[in-house]
Design a protein around this nucleic acid. Structure first.
Length: 111
DNA sequence: GCCATGGCTAGTA
DNA sequence: GCCATGGCTAGTA
Protein backbone atom coordinates (compact mmCIF):
# COMPACT_ATOMS: atom_id res chain seq x y z
CA UNK A 1 0.00 0.00 0.00
CA UNK A 2 1.07 3.56 -0.65
CA UNK A 3 2.61 5.23 2.33
CA UNK A 4 3.09 2.00 4.19
CA UNK A 5 5.93 2.34 6.64
CA UNK A 6 6.52 -1.34 6.93
CA UNK A 7 4.56 -1.58 10.12
CA UNK A 8 1.01 -2.76 10.29
CA UNK A 9 -1.31 0.21 9.90
CA UNK A 10 -3.25 0.98 13.03
CA UNK A 11 -5.80 3.56 14.00
CA UNK A 12 -4.27 6.67 15.67
CA UNK A 13 -5.25 5.78 19.19
CA UNK A 14 -3.91 2.28 18.73
CA UNK A 15 -0.58 3.53 17.36
CA UNK A 16 -0.13 5.93 20.23
CA UNK A 17 -1.05 3.31 22.78
CA UNK A 18 1.45 0.89 21.25
CA UNK A 19 4.24 3.47 21.45
CA UNK A 20 3.43 4.22 25.05
CA UNK A 21 3.35 0.59 26.04
CA UNK A 22 6.71 0.04 24.34
CA UNK A 23 8.14 2.96 26.31
CA UNK A 24 7.43 1.45 29.72
CA UNK A 25 10.89 0.64 31.08
CA UNK A 26 11.99 -2.59 32.70
CA UNK A 27 11.14 -2.67 36.35
CA UNK A 28 8.23 -0.28 35.92
CA UNK A 29 4.51 -0.83 35.41
CA UNK A 30 1.63 1.21 34.07
CA UNK A 31 -2.11 0.72 34.16
CA UNK A 32 -4.65 0.31 31.36
CA UNK A 33 -6.21 3.61 32.29
CA UNK A 34 -2.87 5.42 32.45
CA UNK A 35 -1.90 4.21 28.99
CA UNK A 36 -5.29 5.28 27.64
CA UNK A 37 -5.00 8.72 29.22
CA UNK A 38 -1.46 9.20 27.91
CA UNK A 39 -2.70 8.23 24.46
CA UNK A 40 -5.18 11.04 24.70
CA UNK A 41 -8.30 9.12 25.63
CA UNK A 42 -8.86 9.07 29.36
CA UNK A 43 -11.62 6.61 30.10
CA UNK A 44 -10.68 4.24 27.32
CA UNK A 45 -8.89 1.72 29.47
CA UNK A 46 -10.86 -1.12 27.97
CA UNK A 47 -9.62 -0.23 24.57
CA UNK A 48 -6.08 -0.68 25.87
CA UNK A 49 -7.16 -4.07 27.14
CA UNK A 50 -8.37 -4.97 23.70
CA UNK A 51 -5.14 -3.79 22.09
CA UNK A 52 -3.06 -5.87 24.45
CA UNK A 53 -5.29 -8.86 23.97
CA UNK A 54 -5.15 -8.79 20.20
CA UNK A 55 -1.69 -7.37 19.49
CA UNK A 56 0.64 -8.58 22.22
CA UNK A 57 1.80 -11.54 20.20
CA UNK A 58 2.45 -9.75 16.94
CA UNK A 59 3.47 -6.28 18.02
CA UNK A 60 6.50 -6.98 20.20
CA UNK A 61 5.01 -5.50 23.34
CA UNK A 62 6.11 -5.58 26.96
CA UNK A 63 2.50 -6.47 27.71
CA UNK A 64 3.35 -7.77 31.17
CA UNK A 65 4.17 -4.22 32.32
CA UNK A 66 0.53 -3.19 32.13
CA UNK A 67 -1.52 -4.02 35.20
CA UNK A 68 -4.70 -2.71 36.76
CA UNK A 69 -4.98 0.48 38.73
CA UNK A 70 -5.12 -1.38 42.01
CA UNK A 71 -1.63 -2.75 41.44
CA UNK A 72 -2.92 -6.21 40.60
CA UNK A 73 -2.53 -8.53 37.64
CA UNK A 74 -5.77 -8.80 35.71
CA UNK A 75 -5.05 -11.97 33.76
CA UNK A 76 -6.82 -15.01 35.13
CA UNK A 77 -5.14 -17.97 36.74
CA UNK A 78 -4.12 -20.40 34.06
CA UNK A 79 -4.65 -17.67 31.51
CA UNK A 80 -1.38 -15.81 31.81
CA UNK A 81 -1.31 -14.73 35.44
CA UNK A 82 1.64 -16.91 36.34
CA UNK A 83 3.62 -15.88 33.26
CA UNK A 84 3.02 -12.20 33.85
CA UNK A 85 4.09 -12.55 37.45
CA UNK A 86 7.23 -14.39 36.44
CA UNK A 87 8.14 -11.83 33.78
CA UNK A 88 7.68 -8.95 36.22
CA UNK A 89 9.74 -10.64 38.89
CA UNK A 90 12.49 -11.30 36.35
CA UNK A 91 12.69 -7.53 35.93
CA UNK A 92 12.91 -6.87 39.63
CA UNK A 93 9.27 -6.09 40.28
CA UNK A 94 8.20 -7.77 43.44
CA UNK A 95 4.75 -9.33 43.45
CA UNK A 96 3.41 -9.89 46.92
CA UNK A 97 1.82 -13.10 48.04
CA UNK A 98 -1.63 -11.68 47.43
CA UNK A 99 -0.61 -10.70 43.92
CA UNK A 100 0.00 -7.02 44.50
CA UNK A 101 2.68 -4.80 43.08
CA UNK A 102 3.93 -1.87 45.12
CA UNK A 103 2.95 1.10 43.01
CA UNK A 104 4.85 3.62 45.12
CA UNK A 105 7.92 1.77 44.06
CA UNK A 106 7.15 0.59 40.54
CA UNK A 107 4.58 2.88 38.97
CA UNK A 108 5.98 4.41 35.80
CA UNK A 109 5.82 8.17 35.77
CA UNK A 110 7.25 9.39 32.49
CA UNK A 111 8.75 12.85 32.33
C1' DG B 1 -19.60 -7.23 19.75
C1' DC B 2 -15.11 -7.25 22.07
C1' DC B 3 -12.33 -6.69 26.27
C1' DA B 4 -6.69 -8.52 30.81
C1' DT B 5 -11.24 -1.66 33.43
C1' DG B 6 -12.40 1.45 36.80
C1' DG B 7 -15.14 3.98 39.83
C1' DC B 8 -18.94 4.06 42.62
C1' DT B 9 -22.26 2.10 45.98
C1' DA B 10 -24.46 -0.77 49.16
C1' DG B 11 -24.03 -3.26 52.91
C1' DT B 12 -21.33 -5.25 56.72
C1' DA B 13 -18.23 -4.87 60.96
C1' DG C 1 -20.46 -6.44 43.45
C1' DC C 2 -22.39 -3.87 39.70
C1' DC C 3 -22.52 -1.74 35.31
C1' DA C 4 -21.46 2.33 32.08
C1' DT C 5 -17.74 3.10 29.11
C1' DG C 6 -15.47 3.41 24.14
C1' DG C 7 -12.29 2.96 20.12
C1' DC C 8 -11.81 -0.41 17.19
C1' DT C 9 -12.35 -4.63 14.15
C1' DA C 10 -14.26 -8.82 12.11
C1' DG C 11 -17.34 -10.10 9.21
C1' DT C 12 -21.26 -9.42 6.15
C1' DA C 13 -23.62 -7.10 2.00
Amino acid sequence: MAGDTGHTAHAPFTSRALEIIRAIPRGKVSSYGQVAAMAGHPGSARQVVRILHTLSDSAHLPWHRVINILGGISLPEGGGLELQKRLLESEGVKVSKDGRIDLDRHAWSPR
